[in-house]
Amino acid sequence: MPLLQRRERVSDEIPTASLADIAFLLLIFFLTTTVFNEERGLPIVLPEKSKEQAVAAKNIIFFLVQPDGRVVVKRGQSEETQTVTAEQVSGIMRQELAANPNIIAAIKTDPKAPYRDMIHVLDGVKDAGADRISLQMLGED
């Protein structure tokens, strides 16, 4: 009688004890193979090859990035220039945008200037909320 009872108890349940083991095995597999998306950056749309267009000079502000990291700011028509640090670009751009929402930020970088300085200026311009941005290299065009 006791023998019969024991056998019955064994067979009437689905064994779920190994479920956690299976789940953890798969979990460890995905943990080790996972690579998180790290697509982060500053988006920009380049002008299409044939669609370069002339813009009124008053709607442009030039940021000339020098090899030493300084930035020369030149507004549209005026010949006046102003030398600033990359940190100040954001503030300047904010003012310009407030005065003229259609303004285009033209970032002209010296070929010898490190990429990071150009990114620094682009960051400042983006940070100010500008989305009309043109990238050029000094001594080209």
Binding site: R40, P43, I44, P47, K49, I119, L122, D123
Partner: peptide
């Protein structure tokens, strides 16, 4: 990239 026509670019940064 402009020559290839792929104009949507992201400069990867941290």
């Amino acid at each position: 990239l402009q020559a290839a026509g792929a104009v949507r670019v992201v400069f990867g940064t941290r």
